[in-house]
Amino acid sequence: MSNYPHRPAIESDGYAPTLKRLNQISRLLDNAITIPGTQVGIGLDPILGLIPIGGDVLGLMLSVYIIIESARLGVSKASLSRMVVNIIIDALIGAIPMLGDFFDFAWTANNYNIKLLEDYLNSPGEKKKADQGFIIALFAGLFLLTIVLIALPVILIRMLWNALTSS
C-alpha cells in the first residue's frame, strides 16, 4: 500500500482507502510494468506520451486526479504547489518530441506526488489546509497548461506543414 512500512497515523486517520487508490493510480501511470532483470518500471504515462498531441494531455489529466484527491484530503499549499510543479515539469518536457518520451520514462511525477502526500499525512503537528481560492487558482493554471499542450503542437504542425507546402 504505502512506500513506507510504518504508517500508523495514516491508517488510523481513515486515509488508507484513498491513499491505497492513489498509490494504485500512481503505479499504473509511472511503473506498472517492470523491465525484466532491472528495477526500472514503465507506466501508462510514458506510453500515452507517444500519442501525438492528446497523449500528454491525457497523462496530465490523470496526474491531476492525484492532486485533486490530495487537496480533498486537506494537503497544505506548499505540498500542493510541489505536486503541481512535478506534473508541470512532466507535461512540458514530456511534450517535446522524442526527448520528452525518454524523459517520461525517468521522471515519475506521480510517484513523487504520492511521496509528498504520504509525508504530509504522516507529519506530526498542526496541519494547515490550502484554502479554496488557492486550489481554484492551481486548477485554473493547470487548465491553461492543458490548453497550451494542445495548442502548441497544433501550431508547430501547421507551421511545418506551411513550410513544406510553400516550397
Rank of each mutant, 00 (worst) to 15 (best):
M1P: 07
N3Q: 13
N3K: 09
P5F: 04
R7G: 07
P8Y: 01
P8V: 06
P8T: 10
P17I: 07
T18P: 03
L19K: 05
R21H: 13
L22S: 03
Q24D: 13
I25E: 08
R27H: 13
L29P: 03
A32W: 09
I33Q: 08
T34V: 13
I35A: 07
G37P: 02
G37C: 05
G41E: 04
I42Q: 10
D45S: 15
D45T: 13
G49S: 12
G54C: 08
G55M: 09
D56N: 14
M61A: 13
V64Q: 10
Y65A: 14
Y65D: 08
I66G: 04
A71I: 02
G74A: 10
G74M: 09
S76V: 08
S76L: 03
K77D: 07
S79E: 05
S81M: 11
R82E: 00
M83D: 01
M83K: 00
I88T: 10
D90K: 07
A91P: 00
I93G: 03
G94F: 00
A95D: 10
I96W: 10
P97A: 05
P97H: 01
D101Y: 08
A106E: 14
T108N: 07
A109S: 14
N110D: 05
N110T: 01
A130Q: 03
Q132P: 01
G133Q: 11
A137N: 09
L138W: 07
A140H: 08
G141Y: 02
L142G: 09
L145G: 02
V148A: 15
V148T: 14
I150P: 05
I150K: 05
I157Y: 05
R158P: 05
M159R: 08
W161A: 15
N162A: 13
S166N: 06
